[in-house]
């Protein structure tokens, strides 16, 4: 490309940086949701770029359900907190934990609600954050095609379709009353391919679980689940076996489906993604709870 042209990735990058800076300038207490996944990795990279040479002027927030992959927690603590030296808040719903809420005992829907959605709301209220960045993209799911970049939430962190504002040009309307907040999605216009290409191009470190390796898995309801620690209760006849697998999306290990794969490098991951016939959210078990479940979760305050 010659002359004064930006590649699509550079243009997406510039637009996302604009959004991140706009929020930092207009809100009193922004926070960046950090899920340790690939989208979070890109979002964080953009935040670092936006404020260079300073550090991002807001903390990161990780909602820890206590069921994340051990690799994820290691990556969070060793890379994000220690190596990058970023301000990281980790929040767990202690009440849920005390009551023994797990994906195995309460079912994925109730568990997700208590340990993710309720936990997130607790953290946002506790720190009185008025803007929370999230790494969601519009291409992830049909119901997200109309999501705003600034998604307005009322005092109860609830998303009301009627309260959403039109977004014209890059003139985002961040006007809120005391107690209300917004969720901000700087990666709205990125696709899964864009995210992977950017990680490749920028050499952004990601959790090793995205790469194929021999891991202990069991097949449950047609999905490969990794036995990440001894809390995983095996059902009758289940015997963990070692398989070359990787994860396309990361979450709580009992709810994340693994894919058999030999992709051990980024180009191979991208290759696999381009050749696959199934969309990204297939591996996420929580979407299958009920039809239109994404919509319902959004209303409740989950992303």
């Amino acid at each position: 490309m010659t002359g004064y042209n930006l590649t699509h990735l550079k243009q997406l990058e510039a637009e996302s940086i604009f959004i991140i800076r706009e929020v930092a300038a207009e809100f009193e207490r922004p926070v960046m949701m950090y899920s340790i996944g690939k989208d979070s990795a890109v979002m964080l990279q953009l935040a670092i770029k936006a404020f260079h040479p300073a550090k991002p002027p807001f903390p990161l927030l990780h909602v820890d359900t206590t069921w994340k992959f051990r690799d994820m927690i290691r990556f969070r603590d060793e890379y994000i907190r220690d190596e990058l030296g970023l301000d990281l808040i980790v929040h767990t719903n202690e009440e849920g934990k005390r009551n023994g809420v797990t994906p195995f005992t309460h079912g994925s829907k109730k568990y997700t609600d208590i340990m993710k959605t309720v936990a997130l709301k607790q953290a946002l209220s506790k720190h009185r954050f008025d803007a929370a960045f999230g790494g969601a993209r519009r291409d992830e799911e049909k119901s997200r095609a109309k999501e705003r970049v600034y998604s307005f939430r009322d005092r109860n962190h609830t998303w009301e379709p009627k309260n959403q504002r039109p977004e014209l040009w890059n003139l985002y309307n961040g006007a809120i009353n005391e107690g209300e907040s917004i969720r901000v999605f700087p990666l709205s216009n990125w696709t899964e391919l864009d995210v992977w290409q950017y990680i490749h191009l920028e050499k952004i470190p990601i959790v090793p679980l995205y790469f194929a390796a021999n891991r202990p898995v069991v097949k449950r309801n047609g999905t490969l689940i990794m036995v990440d620690d001894d809390r995983m209760e095996l059902e009758e006849g289940e015997q963990p076996e070692m398989k070359m697998v990787r994860f396309r999306t990361l979450g709580c290990y009992p709810l994340s489906g693994a894919e058999e794969s030999t992709a051990t490098t980024l180009p191979e991951i991208i290759q696999e993604m381009l050749l696959t016939k199934y969309s990204e959210r297939q591996g996420r078990l929580i979407d299958y709870d009920q039809s239109g479940s994404m919509e319902a979760k959004k209303r409740e305050g989950y992303f």
Binding site: L6, H8, Q197, I270
Partner: peptide, 14 residues
């Protein structure tokens, strides 16, 4: 040749 493909796609316009 996935690397060649990536190189090609990194130069796209929006």
């Amino acid at each position: 040749d996935i690397n060649a493909y990536l190189a090609q796609h990194e130069r796209k316009e929006l």
